[in-house]
Simulated assay, not measured.
Amino acid sequence: MEEQWLINQTKEPPDWFIEVVKQYNPTFKKYYGAQLLWQRGIRTISQLDSFINFHSYQPASPWEFGQEIRLAVRRLQSAYKNQDKVTIWGDFDADGITSTAVLWDGLGQFFTQKNNLTYYIPNRLTESHGLNYLGIDKLAQENCQLIVTCDTGSTNINEIIYAKARGIDVIVTDHHTLPESRPPVTAIVNPRYLSQDHPLYHLSGVGVVYKLIEAMYETLPSIPKQPIEDLLDLVAIGLIADLVQLSGDCRYLAQFGIQKLLEDFKKNRKQDEDLEWEDY
């Protein structure tokens, strides 16, 4: 059966909304921008302001993931206290790589990198996506006690059971399709458990792990030495590369991260210019 486009009926924005939109751009002469915003459900001054200016947006708390993120933080606290060996299980696409990097830098504030914190990215050609038995065996031999997945793992039921049998707990962070019932994990943080209109629902893997790191920063605030905002450049790259819907927290994190990328670019360019002058 041939698919057909379903075109929404055009909805005309009221005059007051057109005038408010014009205030953001004095040269704005036609109403099409206002109409597009109105069609997208942006129909109040506060919604418009937070859409255009990310500093006005109030991001959702990581604790809105509910009991699952509390279970994840509790296990990570225990790992920190007992100096367990933690492995980040990543993925090989852009979202998976940036998710791995965010966990590496974020959890690296709590665990010693390369000692208590390592990472594992499956070989695309020989292992494919998700958890696998050979990788779990390798980590068990290295005395791994906790796996934290990113951008993967929600439906790897058999592999999760196998990891548990090898003495490895599993925290799943993911945004892909959920299994029919909760997997036998220590915790599963996945926005698909939320309602579709929730501001966290469309997060990609990198957004989910950022929220997990945010929860860790709030739980153990005296430990991190680097501001969590330093991770947002990676978050923006992963969100945009994964083509998620840029609304709610997705849009906020992407805008914030792009701003961070621009600041880093300007800073690095100035350093390069200063070095060039020193050559003279």
Rank of each mutant, 00 (worst) to 15 (best):
E2H: 13
E3K: 15
I7A: 07
I7C: 06
T10I: 14
E12T: 15
P13N: 05
W16P: 02
F17H: 04
V20M: 14
V21H: 00
K22G: 02
T27F: 13
Y32A: 15
G33N: 10
A34I: 10
Q35S: 14
L37I: 13
G41F: 12
S46D: 14
Q47W: 00
Q47F: 00
L48C: 09
F51C: 01
F54H: 13
H55K: 15
Y57N: 03
P62G: 07
F65H: 10
F65G: 02
I69K: 05
R74M: 05
R75S: 11
R75I: 08
S78K: 12
S78M: 09
D84N: 14
I88E: 09
W89Q: 11
G90R: 12
G90F: 14
A94W: 11
A94H: 06
A94Q: 10
I97S: 07
T98V: 05
T100Y: 02
A101C: 03
V102Q: 07
W104G: 02
W104L: 10
G106M: 04
Q109M: 07
T112A: 11
N115F: 05
N116I: 05
N116F: 06
T118I: 13
I121H: 01
P122T: 01
L125D: 11
T126S: 14
S128T: 07
H129I: 11
L131M: 02
N132K: 03
G135W: 00
I136S: 01
D137I: 03
A140N: 01
A140K: 01
Q141L: 05
E142K: 11
N143D: 15
N143S: 15
I147V: 04
V148I: 15
T149E: 09
C150G: 08
D151R: 09
G153Y: 03
N158D: 15
A163K: 10
A165P: 00
R166V: 03
V172W: 13
D174W: 05
T177W: 14
L178T: 04
P179Q: 04
E180H: 05
E180F: 07
E180D: 13
R182C: 05
P183I: 05
P183G: 06
P184W: 01
P184H: 00
V185I: 06
N190W: 07
P191V: 01
D197G: 03
P199N: 01
L200M: 12
Y201C: 04
H202T: 07
K211R: 08
I213S: 09
M216S: 01
S222Y: 08
S222K: 11
S222T: 14
S222M: 06
Q226I: 08
I228S: 00
D233S: 13
I237W: 08
I237S: 04
G238W: 12
L246N: 00
C250A: 13
R251M: 14
Y252K: 02
F256Q: 11
F256R: 13
F256S: 06
G257L: 08
Q259G: 05
D264N: 15
F265S: 14
K270I: 02
Q271K: 13
D274A: 13
W277V: 14
